[in-house]
């Protein structure tokens, strides 16, 4: 019950955050040089529309009238937003932004989530090993691998992987999310092809953040190993496996906060990775919408990424409460 109330509070907080970001993007678009709304209106006029037609068309695209006051436009925009109407795309004529954005989202979410989970598991495990064996050669190799990979930006990593594994050694396919001859749907060849094509982008996501997990986990494990209760566990003769569990669970705590932050970072990185591997996800959508000055689509994509990041933060927050009893409020 208490948890439910907390969840509701957090969701309300999250909704407020979304509202603030939506407001921000709304005014940002309005304040951009060249006034895109006015520009769209003018373009329609030059195409021979009457001012009334053009104004209506703009209203459909943006959700508000071009000649209204800024405040009235804002209220209109919010009203549309509450009804999940994000307006219509300019570049894909006649298609609602919501539809485009929602069909792009699964690509991004699948890639980002598998990337995050893969890098988290890999990095945390390697971090524990690096901490336990920190005086041996293996520990040093792991630590150095972490520092090196941590230093490589995502887009460089993606390009490097694409070059090495599709051009130098053409092991993995390139340039599409699945084999062209296959019919999308719930059939084994299609899903297999999907997974096979996803290997490189997921690895790109995973490798770019693996180093961060490794280094953070390593220092966390080292500091926990110096805690009193670890010595106590040893002097009480606890089994090594139980002791390891004590250390690991305590050491992983600070990583939950970073986990949430890293999701946001990963969504940001999707702009490069989806472009390089040609996935029609949110990142790519954002890029094309910017190129095409498709402002409604741009705000829509922004908004969805924002919601994803805020939601993942809430999830991380609740995970944290679940694992750390000290955070739970009486």
């Amino acid at each position: 019950m208490r948890e439910a109330i907390r969840l509701i509070k957090r969701l309300i907080g999250g909704a407020l955050m979304v509202l603030i970001v939506a407001t921000f993007t709304f005014f940002l678009v309005r304040l951009m040089p060249g006034n895109p709304v006015q520009a769209a209106y003018n373009t329609l006029i030059t195409r021979g529309m009457t001012p009334v037609q053009a104004a209506n068309e703009v209203r459909v695209m943006y959700g508000f009238m071009p000649h209204e006051s800024l405040w009235a436009q804002y209220v209109h925009y919010l009203n549309q937003l509450i009804h999940f109407n994000l307006g219509q795309s300019i570049s894909y004529e006649g298609v609602s932004v919501l539809h485009i954005v929602l069909s792009a989202a699964p690509w991004t979410i699948t890639l980002v989530l598998s990337g995050v989970v893969a890098s988290f598991l890999l990095g945390v495990t390697a971090g524990v090993v690096a901490a336990m064996k920190r005086s041996s050669g293996m520990g040093s190799v792991l630590t150095v691998s972490g520092s090196l990979l941590h230093g490589i930006p995502q887009f460089v990593m993606a390009l490097l992987l694409a070059f090495v594994f599709t051009t130098l050694w053409p092991i993995f396919p390139f340039g599409a999310p699945y084999g062209g001859a296959l019919t999308p749907g719930f059939n084994l060849p299609f899903i297999g092809s999907l997974a096979f094509h996803a290997v490189l982008p997921v690895v790109a996501y995973a490798l770019s953040s693996y180093g961060g997990w490794l280094l953070t986990m390593k220092s966390s494990v080292v500091s926990v190993m110096g805690d009193d209760f670890v010595l106590a566990a040893e002097l009480r003769g606890l089994k090594p496996s139980i002791r390891f569990g004590y250390i690991a669970r305590n050491a992983i705590l600070p990583l939950f906060t970073i986990f949430a932050l890293s999701l946001g970072f990963m969504f940001g990185g999707s702009v490069f990775i989806e472009n390089i591997f040609d996935y029609n996800g949110l990142g790519n959508l954002l890029l094309t919408s910017i190129n095409n000055r498709d402002y409604p689509l741009m705000t829509g994509a922004f908004l969805l990424i924002t919601i994803a990041v805020i939601l993942s933060n809430i999830v991380a927050d609740f995970l944290y409460t679940a694992v750390d009893p000290r955070i739970r409020r009486p």
């Binding site: 805690d227 009193d228 209760f229 010595l231 106590a232 566990a233 004590y246 669970r249 305590n250 705590l253 694992v323 750390d324 009893p325 000290r326």
Partner: peptide, 9 residues
């Protein structure tokens, strides 16, 4: 003064 118990269990 020492925390000789696992804080999470």
């Amino acid at each position: 003064s020492s925390n000789s118990l696992n804080p999470l269990k």
